[in-house]
Amino acid sequence: MQRLHRDDVSYGDWEHGTWNVQPWHQGESLYDLWQPHRSDEASSSPDLGEALSCAEAVAVLHATGWAHGDIQPAHLIVSSEGTALIDLALAHGGDIPTAYDFAYRGCLVHYESPEISRSVLETGTATPTMAADVYALGATLFISATGLRHVAYPDDASRKDQRRAIVEGPHRPVDVPGVLGKLIDAMLSPEPSHRPTSAEVCGELRSAC
Protein backbone atom coordinates (compact mmCIF):
# COMPACT_ATOMS: atom_id res chain seq x y z
CA MET A 1 0.00 0.00 0.00
CA GLN A 2 1.31 3.43 -0.96
CA ARG A 3 0.55 6.36 1.33
CA LEU A 4 1.08 10.09 0.77
CA HIS A 5 0.27 13.13 2.91
CA ARG A 6 -0.82 16.64 1.97
CA ASP A 7 -1.21 18.64 5.18
CA ASP A 8 -4.06 16.89 7.02
CA VAL A 9 -5.17 14.69 4.09
CA SER A 10 -3.74 11.22 3.50
CA TYR A 11 -4.25 9.29 0.30
CA GLY A 12 -2.81 6.30 -1.47
CA ASP A 13 -3.66 3.14 -3.35
CA TRP A 14 -4.28 -0.50 -2.61
CA GLU A 15 -5.24 -3.62 -4.53
CA HIS A 16 -8.79 -2.38 -5.16
CA GLY A 17 -7.92 1.16 -6.27
CA THR A 18 -7.26 4.48 -4.54
CA TRP A 19 -8.33 5.88 -1.17
CA ASN A 20 -8.15 9.09 0.82
CA VAL A 21 -8.71 9.90 4.49
CA GLN A 22 -9.63 13.34 5.82
CA PRO A 23 -10.24 14.60 9.37
CA TRP A 24 -13.65 14.27 11.02
CA HIS A 25 -15.23 17.55 12.16
CA GLN A 26 -18.04 17.86 14.68
CA GLY A 27 -20.78 20.38 13.98
CA GLU A 28 -23.84 21.06 11.86
CA SER A 29 -24.03 21.51 8.13
CA LEU A 30 -24.98 25.01 7.07
CA TYR A 31 -28.28 23.72 5.69
CA ASP A 32 -29.23 22.10 8.99
CA LEU A 33 -28.05 25.10 10.99
CA TRP A 34 -30.24 27.51 9.02
CA GLN A 35 -33.36 25.34 9.08
CA PRO A 36 -35.16 27.66 11.55
CA HIS A 37 -34.86 30.53 9.05
CA ARG A 38 -36.71 28.53 6.38
CA SER A 39 -39.93 27.91 8.31
CA ASP A 40 -43.10 29.92 7.65
CA GLU A 41 -42.88 31.24 11.19
CA ALA A 42 -39.24 32.33 10.90
CA SER A 43 -38.66 35.52 12.84
CA SER A 44 -35.00 36.13 12.07
CA SER A 45 -32.67 36.23 9.09
CA PRO A 46 -29.66 33.94 8.65
CA ASP A 47 -26.71 34.95 10.79
CA LEU A 48 -24.14 37.01 8.88
CA GLY A 49 -21.39 35.76 11.19
CA GLU A 50 -22.15 32.18 10.20
CA ALA A 51 -22.17 33.14 6.53
CA LEU A 52 -18.83 34.87 7.08
CA SER A 53 -17.32 31.79 8.71
CA CYS A 54 -18.28 29.74 5.65
CA ALA A 55 -16.83 32.32 3.26
CA GLU A 56 -13.65 32.45 5.33
CA ALA A 57 -13.24 28.68 5.11
CA VAL A 58 -13.42 28.92 1.32
CA ALA A 59 -11.11 31.94 1.21
CA VAL A 60 -8.48 30.16 3.32
CA LEU A 61 -8.38 27.31 0.78
CA HIS A 62 -8.25 29.74 -2.14
CA ALA A 63 -5.34 31.59 -0.55
CA THR A 64 -3.29 28.39 -0.85
CA GLY A 65 -3.93 28.27 -4.61
CA TRP A 66 -6.52 25.49 -4.50
CA ALA A 67 -10.12 25.37 -5.72
CA HIS A 68 -12.47 23.02 -3.86
CA GLY A 69 -14.62 21.87 -6.77
CA ASP A 70 -17.52 20.54 -4.68
CA ILE A 71 -18.81 23.25 -2.34
CA GLN A 72 -22.27 22.44 -0.99
CA PRO A 73 -24.06 22.88 2.36
CA ALA A 74 -23.06 19.41 3.59
CA HIS A 75 -19.40 20.30 3.13
CA LEU A 76 -19.53 23.37 5.39
CA ILE A 77 -19.55 22.13 8.98
CA VAL A 78 -20.26 24.90 11.48
CA SER A 79 -19.38 24.63 15.16
CA SER A 80 -18.50 26.90 18.06
CA GLU A 81 -14.87 26.62 16.91
CA GLY A 82 -15.61 27.94 13.44
CA THR A 83 -16.43 26.39 10.08
CA ALA A 84 -14.61 23.47 8.48
CA LEU A 85 -14.68 23.01 4.72
CA ILE A 86 -14.63 19.24 4.23
CA ASP A 87 -14.35 16.73 1.38
CA LEU A 88 -11.33 17.73 -0.67
CA ALA A 89 -11.62 14.74 -3.01
CA LEU A 90 -12.22 16.95 -6.07
CA ALA A 91 -9.89 19.83 -5.10
CA HIS A 92 -7.67 21.22 -7.84
CA GLY A 93 -4.59 23.40 -7.65
CA GLY A 94 -1.25 22.00 -6.52
CA ASP A 95 0.83 19.16 -7.87
CA ILE A 96 -0.98 15.83 -7.74
CA PRO A 97 0.71 12.55 -8.69
CA THR A 98 -0.66 11.31 -12.01
CA ALA A 99 -2.08 8.17 -10.41
CA TYR A 100 -4.46 10.31 -8.32
CA ASP A 101 -5.18 13.11 -10.80
CA PHE A 102 -8.58 12.00 -12.08
CA ALA A 103 -10.62 13.93 -14.62
CA TYR A 104 -13.13 16.30 -13.01
CA ARG A 105 -16.62 15.44 -14.24
CA GLY A 106 -18.53 18.01 -12.24
CA CYS A 107 -20.01 17.85 -8.76
CA LEU A 108 -23.46 17.83 -7.17
CA VAL A 109 -25.21 19.64 -9.99
CA HIS A 110 -27.42 21.82 -7.75
CA TYR A 111 -24.31 23.92 -6.99
CA GLU A 112 -22.51 23.92 -10.33
CA SER A 113 -21.75 27.19 -12.08
CA PRO A 114 -22.92 27.69 -15.67
CA GLU A 115 -19.39 27.37 -17.05
CA ILE A 116 -18.80 24.08 -15.24
CA SER A 117 -22.15 22.65 -16.36
CA ARG A 118 -21.55 23.83 -19.94
CA SER A 119 -18.11 22.23 -20.07
CA VAL A 120 -19.37 18.91 -18.69
CA LEU A 121 -22.23 18.90 -21.21
CA GLU A 122 -19.90 19.67 -24.12
CA THR A 123 -16.81 17.67 -23.24
CA GLY A 124 -17.66 15.41 -20.31
CA THR A 125 -15.14 17.14 -18.04
CA ALA A 126 -14.35 20.56 -16.57
CA THR A 127 -11.71 22.31 -14.48
CA PRO A 128 -12.58 23.46 -10.94
CA THR A 129 -11.92 27.17 -10.43
CA MET A 130 -12.13 29.62 -7.57
CA ALA A 131 -14.79 31.58 -9.45
CA ALA A 132 -16.89 28.43 -9.73
CA ASP A 133 -16.39 27.87 -5.99
CA VAL A 134 -17.77 31.36 -5.31
CA TYR A 135 -20.82 30.55 -7.44
CA ALA A 136 -21.28 27.28 -5.54
CA LEU A 137 -20.99 29.14 -2.23
CA GLY A 138 -23.68 31.56 -3.41
CA ALA A 139 -25.95 28.64 -4.36
CA THR A 140 -25.17 27.05 -0.98
CA LEU A 141 -26.10 30.17 0.96
CA PHE A 142 -29.25 30.57 -1.13
CA ILE A 143 -30.61 27.04 -0.61
CA SER A 144 -29.65 27.07 3.06
CA ALA A 145 -31.53 30.34 3.61
CA THR A 146 -34.58 29.60 1.44
CA GLY A 147 -34.81 25.84 0.95
CA LEU A 148 -34.87 26.39 -2.83
CA ARG A 149 -32.34 25.39 -5.46
CA HIS A 150 -30.92 28.47 -7.15
CA VAL A 151 -32.21 27.23 -10.53
CA ALA A 152 -35.65 25.67 -10.94
CA TYR A 153 -36.00 22.22 -12.50
CA PRO A 154 -38.12 19.15 -11.68
CA ASP A 155 -36.98 17.00 -8.77
CA ASP A 156 -36.71 14.00 -11.09
CA ALA A 157 -34.76 15.84 -13.81
CA SER A 158 -31.73 13.99 -15.14
CA ARG A 159 -28.28 15.41 -14.51
CA LYS A 160 -28.11 16.45 -18.15
CA ASP A 161 -31.39 18.35 -17.85
CA GLN A 162 -30.28 19.92 -14.57
CA ARG A 163 -27.10 21.16 -16.24
CA ARG A 164 -29.02 22.50 -19.22
CA ALA A 165 -31.25 24.48 -16.85
CA ILE A 166 -28.19 25.96 -15.13
CA VAL A 167 -26.55 26.87 -18.45
CA GLU A 168 -29.71 28.40 -19.90
CA GLY A 169 -30.66 30.19 -16.66
CA PRO A 170 -31.64 32.49 -15.20
CA HIS A 171 -31.34 31.69 -11.53
CA ARG A 172 -34.29 32.26 -9.21
CA PRO A 173 -34.74 35.80 -7.86
CA VAL A 174 -32.71 36.19 -4.68
CA ASP A 175 -35.18 37.27 -2.01
CA VAL A 176 -32.80 36.90 0.94
CA PRO A 177 -32.90 40.25 2.74
CA GLY A 178 -30.09 42.74 3.24
CA VAL A 179 -26.41 42.47 2.49
CA LEU A 180 -26.49 38.68 2.29
CA GLY A 181 -29.06 38.74 -0.50
CA LYS A 182 -27.08 41.30 -2.52
CA LEU A 183 -23.92 39.23 -2.11
CA ILE A 184 -25.63 36.00 -3.14
CA ASP A 185 -26.99 37.70 -6.24
CA ALA A 186 -23.49 38.88 -7.18
CA MET A 187 -21.98 35.44 -6.48
CA LEU A 188 -24.54 33.84 -8.80
CA SER A 189 -23.55 36.00 -11.77
CA PRO A 190 -23.40 33.82 -14.91
CA GLU A 191 -20.19 35.61 -15.88
CA PRO A 192 -17.25 34.40 -13.74
CA SER A 193 -15.38 37.70 -13.97
CA HIS A 194 -18.39 39.56 -12.55
CA ARG A 195 -18.44 37.52 -9.33
CA PRO A 196 -16.66 38.74 -6.22
CA THR A 197 -13.71 36.71 -5.03
CA SER A 198 -14.05 34.72 -1.83
CA ALA A 199 -11.84 37.31 -0.11
CA GLU A 200 -14.15 40.11 -1.30
CA VAL A 201 -17.18 38.19 -0.02
CA CYS A 202 -15.46 37.98 3.36
CA GLY A 203 -14.73 41.70 3.32
CA GLU A 204 -18.36 42.62 2.58
CA LEU A 205 -19.67 40.32 5.31
CA ARG A 206 -17.14 41.58 7.87
CA SER A 207 -18.22 45.14 7.19
CA ALA A 208 -21.86 44.19 7.67
CA CYS A 209 -21.42 42.10 10.83
Score class of each variant (00 low, 15 high):
residue 4 L to S: 05
residue 6 R to T: 12
residue 11 Y to W: 10
residue 18 T to Q: 10
residue 18 T to N: 08
residue 22 Q to H: 06
residue 25 H to R: 14
residue 31 Y to G: 02
residue 32 D to G: 14
residue 33 L to P: 07
residue 35 Q to I: 07
residue 36 P to Y: 00
residue 45 S to V: 15
residue 45 S to C: 13
residue 46 P to T: 07
residue 48 L to P: 09
residue 51 A to L: 06
residue 51 A to H: 06
residue 57 A to E: 01
residue 57 A to M: 06
residue 58 V to Q: 01
residue 58 V to W: 01
residue 59 A to H: 02
residue 59 A to Y: 01
residue 61 L to R: 02
residue 63 A to R: 10
residue 67 A to H: 10
residue 72 Q to F: 02
residue 79 S to W: 00
residue 79 S to F: 00
residue 82 G to H: 10
residue 92 H to R: 15
residue 95 D to K: 08
residue 98 T to I: 13
residue 98 T to Q: 15
residue 100 Y to T: 09
residue 100 Y to K: 02
residue 102 F to L: 13
residue 103 A to F: 06
residue 106 G to W: 08
residue 107 C to G: 11
residue 108 L to H: 12
residue 109 V to H: 09
residue 109 V to Y: 10
residue 110 H to E: 15
residue 110 H to T: 14
residue 114 P to A: 01
residue 117 S to Y: 05
residue 117 S to F: 06
residue 120 V to D: 08
residue 129 T to F: 08
residue 136 A to T: 09
residue 140 T to G: 07
residue 142 F to M: 02
residue 143 I to Y: 03
residue 148 L to G: 04
residue 155 D to S: 12
residue 159 R to P: 13
residue 159 R to H: 15
residue 161 D to Y: 08
residue 163 R to A: 15
residue 165 A to P: 11
residue 169 G to D: 06
residue 170 P to Y: 00
residue 174 V to E: 01
residue 175 D to W: 03
residue 184 I to K: 03
residue 185 D to K: 00
residue 186 A to W: 06
residue 190 P to M: 06
residue 193 S to K: 13
residue 193 S to E: 13
residue 195 R to F: 00
residue 195 R to Q: 02
residue 196 P to Y: 03
residue 196 P to K: 00
residue 197 T to K: 00
residue 204 E to L: 13
residue 205 L to I: 07
residue 207 S to F: 07
